[in-house]
Amino acid sequence: MQPLIYARGLVKRFGSFTAVDGIDLEVQPGEAFGFLGPNGAGKSSTMRMISCVSMPSAGELRILGRDPVREGPAIRARLGVCPQLDNLDPDLTVWENLTTYARYFGLSRAEARRKAGELLEFAQLTEKASSLVEPLSGGMKRRLTIARAMVNDPELVLLDEPTTGLDPQARHLLWERLFRLKQQGVTLVLTTHYMDEAEQLCDRLVVMDGGRIVAEGSPRRLIEDYSSPEVVELRFGLEELAGYVPRLEGVGDRVDPLPDRILLYAKDGDEAVAEVHRRGLTPSSVLVRRSTLEDVFLHLTGRTLVD
């Protein structure tokens, strides 16, 4: 099957600064695909190229099998885009934001009204229909921006940090809605800083850092490849942590000191804890847990001090 997103050596430069530094991507129809990465990694720059608004500086990019430079409007007609920063129309009401956006996609007036009603329901903003956008809370604006992205029944939905600023209830509701879209065969591409979101929603992820892709795989696969099954978190009161690192050498597979705690990556957490005690160390708290994407992320993006 032809990939919906195909990129080879994709580059984005701003002046002399390279924000996206030659990435390869393929996203298949029906997939849920995620970008992880620290601030400034180049996730939004990549998303903006995929949404066919920002033009690539170099490399090859095909979206829905077509060329974004020459066929921008025809491709964008079939995309749903939620940018990182809300760009709602402040001159219009909540309702008009949806209906005018529907008209940009060519829906008839009646169809636009029907769709707006349905999406207000989706965003739980029905009672705000006639309000202007400005007085809405941050989370409500976010929900409206996401709803607006669905107005043309897109085949490919691009969400840049969709749930930033949403309360937990709204987040879970959105996850459920996105999951339903996925069941209907819609392809989802999203960026997030929430590892639980990435684990919940994405079939496949890439981790970006400094404009490059540093890892790729399913959440489970990434954990297997870049972390150990279990992680031990050790805290030592207010003492300087660096001094403990040499004394923990060889416990488990890897030792990562963070500013507030030390992480031990191990196949068997309890066994590692026993070893810590055998070495005469007395941490103020010990927590054994399963490895998560967060650990992969910390490891890959250099948030750790020692590798």
């Binding site: 885009v81 760009n87 060519g106």
Partner: peptide, 17 residues
């Protein structure tokens, strides 16, 4: 400020439109 032009451009609307 509002970036509503960016929103418009993310659709089927071209710069000519």
């Amino acid at each position: 400020w509002t970036r509503s032009s960016h929103a418009m451009y993310a659709t089927r609307v071209s710069i000519g439109d």
